[in-house]
Amino acid sequence: MNRDVDDGWTDPEGADLLSETMAAMYQGVPADSPTGPAAVVGVMQRRARRRRTAKRTALGAGSLTVAGALAFGAGSLLGWPTADPPPPPGQSSSASPSVSASPEPTSALELIQDGFRPRSWGVGDITCGMPAAELASTDEGFRFEVAGEVTDDGDEMSVPFRLTPTSGDPSTEWYGSTLVWIHDGTVVDVPRDFREGVAEPSVRSNGGPVEFPVTVFASNSMCAPEPVPDDFAFTGDVPFWDEDIFPHRLPPGDYDVVVLIQEYNAGENDPYVLSDPVPVTITEDQQVVRRSAG
């Protein structure tokens, strides 16, 4: 048995009970579930077939399909968090005729759907269109602030942050760092997942302040949903989470970006901390650059 191997770890008493319990759990799942894999084979076959077709199309059509994927904002469609980079800045989403034939709005406020909340986003009470003044950390035991010079390389920005426990548990582990975009005092984009903008998958302060960089880049707004067209060919993972697609970039303009990190727990409604707002500008070619506050 592998657990007898001397690998620098001594299994405690009670490990057998743990093993037995998990074995019983494994064997105790009902075999006749109406929503189990056997009952939804057809659904899975259709989903897999659609993906395979899209992949073959991608292999055959090359750059045409890649361009289509970018036009549809594939980076924002992913159902699961992904380490894939976002679509490169400068790739316009305007070549998306089957999604929306109307011209792109010039203001984020015209773009977004007030009160919308993406299905894949379930943190706190943050919704599209809410006043930025109502954004508040749900864990007040930490100070989360910009800790140094913001750098940008023309495509994206890197912002050094410092998380300092004040009255909070210093051993708290934090997961992800996600971006909330604000325009004219209104939330115009919420994160698509918990890896958006993340530099490290998790952060633990270990008793003192911890510093880490957060990458800020322009992406499609999750506050501007569109229905999935019938003939839509997914080139990435099927967006099984969201019932919409999000093909619209935030328009060029001035924004404030707030970074959100959430406690790494398994419970519901884990507390989160919001950073100071970082003033940025999205340029005409979708680059994110620093902007002086004021």
């Binding site: 494994y26 799942v29 894999p37 056997a38 939804v40 084979v41 899975m44």
Partner: peptide, 20 residues
């Protein structure tokens, strides 16, 4: 497609058990 169906019907419960 057949392989998916076989795995889902024959081993689906075991897979769900593992995920559970």
């Amino acid at each position: 497609s057949d392989d998916l169906e076989r795995l889902a019907t024959e081993r689906g419960t075991a897979l769900v058990g593992y995920a559970y």
